[in-house]
Amino acid sequence: MEQDQKIPVVLLAGGLGTRLREETETKPKPMVEVGGYPILWHIMKNYASFGFDEFVICLGYKGEKIKDFFLNYHTRQGSLTVDLENGGVTMHQNAGKDSWKVHLLETGAETMTGGRIKQASQFLGNRTFMATYGDGVANINISDLLAHHRARRRLATLTAVRPPARFGGLAIQDSTITTFTEKPQIGEGWINGGFMVFEPQIVDLIASNDTILERTPLELLAKDKELSAFCHDGFWQCMDTVRDLNYLRELWDKGNAPWKCWN
């Protein structure tokens, strides 16, 4: 893998968010706000604070809301004058420090997570890339995650966390994932927290838009001992329910958001 290439980040932001219906009737879940900004923005700020500022956002359900946010991002950040006679707009101050490149990719409302990754490959080339979900925040050191991936020399690495067993269950031996079980109903231990790193060959394991990343591709990689675990004992929280959302908002409002690692 090339260490001098810029590492892009794929954000899976096309799901329906049915368990947060109170918020997602009118917007995709990644656009639900914490502290006045979409949770997607928080995730991107985290990556960018470690120098990873090229993003491929995989759109699906109500993707136009995410497009609108970024199309208007610059003007929302600073002061401006609008000349109503001719429609001219003048910016009066720096609109912010974010110098991101954001690819907004329509992947289809019904496309599965693997299919979205495969479609995103048109922006990735032959580069190592990162990927995560558009609804979870953590205080993960992204640079350490990438260093771990490079040191283990596997085709894929995902971050293992220890919340309640609602997500993909992992069995780990010597930092290598030996089995991967999607969303076990019972049990405790390490689970899939997202924040993944992939080599470009992962795309070859994705058959179509109907492929679920967390099933055949990751299960095959685990079987072949090509799936590494970056074990994270720190803060991690998804925004799956109203209770989760309220918890994240409370942390932010109290100035105690563990995932905020930027100024």
Rank of each mutant, 00 (worst) to 15 (best):
K6W: 13
G14A: 09
G14E: 04
L20Y: 02
T24G: 00
E25P: 00
K29L: 03
M31Q: 01
V32Q: 00
V32R: 00
V34D: 00
G35K: 00
G36C: 01
P38N: 07
I39H: 00
H42Q: 06
M44T: 07
M44H: 03
N46K: 02
F50D: 14
G51K: 14
D53T: 15
D53G: 15
L59D: 11
G63A: 11
G63M: 09
E64I: 03
E64F: 04
K67W: 00
F69T: 02
F69G: 01
F70Y: 14
L71Y: 01
H74Q: 09
H74T: 06
T75V: 11
R76D: 03
G78D: 02
L80Q: 11
L84F: 08
L84W: 05
T90H: 13
T90E: 11
M91K: 04
Q93V: 13
A95P: 01
K101A: 04
G108P: 01
M112Q: 15
G114Q: 10
R116I: 10
R116D: 02
I117V: 15
K118W: 04
F123D: 09
T128C: 10
F129P: 01
F129R: 09
A131G: 04
A131Q: 11
T132Q: 08
Y133T: 08
A138H: 02
A138K: 02
N139R: 07
N139S: 12
D144G: 11
L145D: 12
A147P: 11
H149T: 05
R150D: 10
R154D: 12
R154Q: 14
L155I: 07
R162Q: 12
P164L: 14
A165V: 12
F167I: 04
G168V: 08
L170Y: 03
S175F: 07
E182M: 10
I186W: 10
I186H: 11
G187V: 06
W190N: 04
I191Q: 02
F198T: 10
F198R: 15
E199H: 15
I202L: 07
V203P: 09
V203N: 14
V203A: 15
D204A: 08
L205I: 03
S208H: 06
D210S: 14
E214S: 10
E226I: 13
E226W: 13
L227S: 11
F230D: 11
H232I: 08
D233P: 05
G234V: 06
W236Y: 03
W236R: 07
Q237W: 02
M239P: 08
V242R: 13
V242S: 15
R243P: 06
R243T: 11
D253E: 12
